[in-house]
């Protein structure tokens, strides 16, 4: 019986029929989605911290307004995704609990510090750029609520990437000090950005099942290559370089070759030993604890009004 349901389910997925919350689904499909969507939501929420760091120090009112709007969008992305995950039967509080206790992961990129204003440019261009590369195929993910949330997210992301590119383009036309600052930011963020696509395909065992269920549409390495190809060209327009001496166009592959990724660093950061892991989680927990009286007051106020 279980088996027959599995077959019916796979048939639906193969026919590109979206799975909706009340439909039967394999438990493993549900759990995989809960993990992936909540992890994604946590990344959007934690992702506000490195950029939030520069809102008060943006160089102009225009840049400040843009950065504020961008960070607010990320909060929105977190909320769309949390509510998509909730349709699978996990509560919001449970997801927060998993984040705050370190049980749930978020994208390791947000455990790096934002040292200069140029980092705002690089995050928009590379980090949001990599996120878009990952997320566009998720708009066709087999789970309806996730796919719909991703459509909304993707619509908003392209502004994020462009505002980042615009910051770097402006710095590129600036003083020697500004150009140096931008190049330094690119040098620090490049490798962590291409790690955002996750481990190599042969070290990513869950990927095969996720592709079969059409939760994922492309492999980590495919997306990484696509991203590198695009950035290798865009960096020329900016007038900067990427910090990889092995980066070279390969005429036979019709792709850029690139250097060895430091996977040891990747796993270290995931395991909690990145430069800012502790700081990020502390900031998140503090926001949750400091907001407790507000949540309590609103609950009490609503109860009082209901009784009246």
């Amino acid at each position: 019986m279980q088996n027959q349901q599995d077959v019916l389910f796979q048939n639906k997925v193969d026919k590109e029929i979206r799975i909706e919350p009340k439909d039967w689904m394999p438990e493993k499909y549900r759990q995989t989605l809960i993990r992936q969507i909540s992890q994604h939501a946590h990344s959007e929420i934690i992702g506000m911290l490195p950029e939030g760091n520069w809102i008060t120090r943006a160089p102009s009112l225009r840049r400040k307004a843009i950065l504020l709007a961008k960070v607010q969008d990320e909060a929105g992305h977190g909320l769309y995704l949390y509510s998509a995950a909730e349709t699978l039967g996990i509560s919001r509080d449970e997801m927060y609990h998993q984040l705050h206790t370190g049980k749930a992961k978020y994208s390791s990129i947000f455990n790096y510090p934002t040292l200069s204003w140029a980092d705002m440019g690089v995050i928009g261009w590379l980090v949001d750029g990599a996120a878009i590369m990952n997320q566009v195929p998720l708009c066709r993910s087999s789970y309806g609520p996730y796919a719909r949330a991703m459509v909304r997210v993707c619509k908003e992301e392209s502004f994020h990437q462009r505002q980042g590119f615009d910051i770097l383009y402006t710095l590129g036309k600036g003083s020697e000090a500004q150009r140096k600052m931008a190049q330094d930011a690119i040098n620090r963020w490049w490798w962590p950005s291409i790690m955002m696509f996750g481990p190599k395909d042969d070290e990513s065992p869950n990927s095969i099942q996720s592709m079969k269920w059409k939760i994922k549409r492309f492999s980590n390495d495919e997306l990484r290559q696509k991203f590198i190809d695009v950035c290798a060209e865009q960096v020329k327009v900016l007038g900067f370089t990427l910090p990889d001496k092995d980066l070279k166009w390969n005429e036979t592959r019709k792709h850029y070759d690139f250097g060895e990724i430091n996977w040891d660093e990747f796993w270290q950061v995931i395991q909690g030993n990145g430069p800012c892991n502790k700081e990020r989680l502390e900031a998140r927990k503090k926001a949750w604890t400091d907001g407790e009286w507000v949540r309590d007051a609103a609950t009490a106020y609503a109860a009082k009004n209901k009784a009246a």
């Binding site: 909320l79 769309y80 509510s83 998509a84 609503a302």
Partner: peptide, 10 residues
């Protein structure tokens, strides 16, 4: 989509 709030106004 959906969201959490204490009451309808919120």
């Amino acid at each position: 989509g959906s969201l959490h709030a204490a009451d309808a106004a919120m």
